[in-house]
Design a protein around this nucleic acid. Structure first.
Lengths: 104, 104
DNA sequence: TATGTTAGTTACTTTATGTAAGTAATTATA
DNA sequence: TATAATTACTTACATAAAGTAACTAACATA
C-alpha cells in the first residue's frame, strides 16, 4: 500500500525538527551558548519541556551541555558541529517567513 | 525578563513547520499534486490528523484543494506558490539528514 | 441487494505539553 | 542565625494534541 517511500534519514530529521520548540531552541543557540534560564525567558516554552528538549538534543549530539562550577552554578548549552550544521535550515525558514508571512 | 526577542514572523513560520506531519505533507506535495488517500498511505499519519493539517495548510494559503467530480470523486491537494517557496527549507533538512544521520 | 471506492467525520484512548509548586546547592541579606 | 534569592531543574496534576477504529455519504459495479 505504501507507494512513495520516504528516506528514513529524512523522516528522522523531520521528526526532530517538527517537535514543538526544538527549532527555536537551536535558533537561539546559533547566536552562541546560552544558559537554561536565558533560553526559558527568551521564548514561552515551559521549564519542564525545555529540560526535556535539551536532554533529547544532547543525546542526539546536537547540543552540548557544560557545567561551570561557579556560584551559583552556571550551565551552558551550545551547539555541536551537528547542531551548527542546521543553520541553513533555520536561515531558509527565516527567509521564507520574511517573504511570505505578514507582520501582525 | 525577555532579552533576545524573536521576530514574530519567524516564530509563526516555526510554529507552522514544527507541527507534527506538516513538513512531510509539504515534502510529498513538492513532487506534484496528491490525493488524500495517497498522502495517507505514503506516511503513517492518521486520517483524522491529515484532514486537520490539510485544512490548516489550505487556510494559510500553502496548499490548494481541487475537486474533480469524477466517479468516485477525485480531490487533489497541491502546493501554492507560498507552499512551493518552502522547497529550500525541505531541501536543507534533506541535506542535513544525509550528512549527519545514520541509516538504520 | 450487497460490495467497493474516496474522502472524510466521530467518539474514545493515549501521548504531549502547560502550569504551578517543590527541591538542592550555594550565597547574600536582615 | 534565620530568611530570602538564585540557578537548574523535577514532580504532580490539568489540558491539548494526536492515534485508533468504526462510521458516513455519494456514487458505481457485480
Amino acid at each position: 500500500m505504501n507507494q512513495a517511500l520516504i528516506c528514513p534519514r529524512f523522516e528522522k530529521a523531520m521528526s526532530i525538527m517538527s517537535q514543538r520548540w526544538t527549532g527555536l531552541v537551536i535558533y537561539q543557540l546559533l547566536a552562541g551558548p546560552k544558559r537554561f534560564c536565558t533560553l526559558e525567558s527568551s521564548m514561552s516554552i515551559s521549564g519542564r519541556v525545555l529540560s526535556e528538549r535539551l536532554k533529547d538534543l544532547e543525546q542526539q549530539g546536537i547540543v552540548k551541555r557544560e557545567v561551570y562550577p561557579e556560584t551559583p552554578v552556571r550551565i551552558e548549552y551550545s551547539l555541536t558541529d551537528k547542531g551548527m550544521a542546521l543553520e541553513p535550515v533555520l536561515r531558509e525558514i527565516e527567509k521564507w517567513s520574511q517573504e511570505w508571512l505578514q507582520a501582525e
